[in-house]
Design a protein around this nucleic acid. Sequence first.
DNA 1: CGTATTTGACCGGCGC
DNA 2: GCGCCGGTCAAATACG
Length: 266
Amino acid sequence: MEAHITSSNEKAVETDLQANLQSLRKENETLRFMLGVMNRKCNILQARLQERKAEQFMNINLTQSGSNNETNYKKARTEFPAPINRTSRILVRADSQDNSLIVKDGYQWRKYGQKVTKDNPSPRAYFRCSMAPGCQVKKKVQRCVEDKNVLVAIYDGEHNHDSNANSDIGEYSLFSSDRIGVATPSSNSMHNIISPPHITNHDSPFRPAIALDLSLSGPNKENQRNYVEKDHHNNYYYNIEECVASLTRDPNFTASLAAAVARSMY
DNA sequence: CGTATTTGACCGGCGC
DNA sequence: GCGCCGGTCAAATACG
């Protein structure tokens, strides 16, 4: 009898927990969506500010001298580069037999050049974002000198528009297991591949690791994070595990977490 | 025929 | 000044 009551109580608690978990998931989803919207709005505003600055610069030059528009525009573009000149390096698994330097990342690119560089026998392809007229994001794609199965894509600048990756994630390899990792802008070699530390690799140093993508959209968002986490004491961590370990060591954090979980349950 | 890609020419920065 | 190198331009070409 008593045992029966206990089990029904447990069931009630379980369904309660399930419901709470569901509502927390929904809340999380909503917050992520809002963050995504704010991110996009921020990018658009930055692009508009950039255009205004360029226009102002052109106007000043036109009133000061009678030189032609194109020269002024070119100068304005160089004087005022992309609002935040971010660069990020992304490594993507590719078939060594496939000679195309195409990295599917959810954006539309127009190729405008190809060049063989000194340090790498594989040609480097130059792309410009063609999804939005004002977008000045560029990317360079080249096969890794150390492993031809890996494409190195270097992104330069910040998109002023959304990608279509969110709507059709499965199509784009950068958002699936094809992506190997993100390296810091200063890195010059494959040793900067970032992968979960618990994944060991005995076959090849460049074998793709599983990368869990928590970003909201395109590759430039990766650059903002670069897998570097910062805690509330302003300490930087270069991998998730280290960050989690530090947080769990912090009694304030664990107490706050426990309180938050308790609040969500009752 | 319009659009995307290719590819040689050109440009600017840098070191000598 | 010269040569090297990476990045960009633009005419030619390919493609749907």
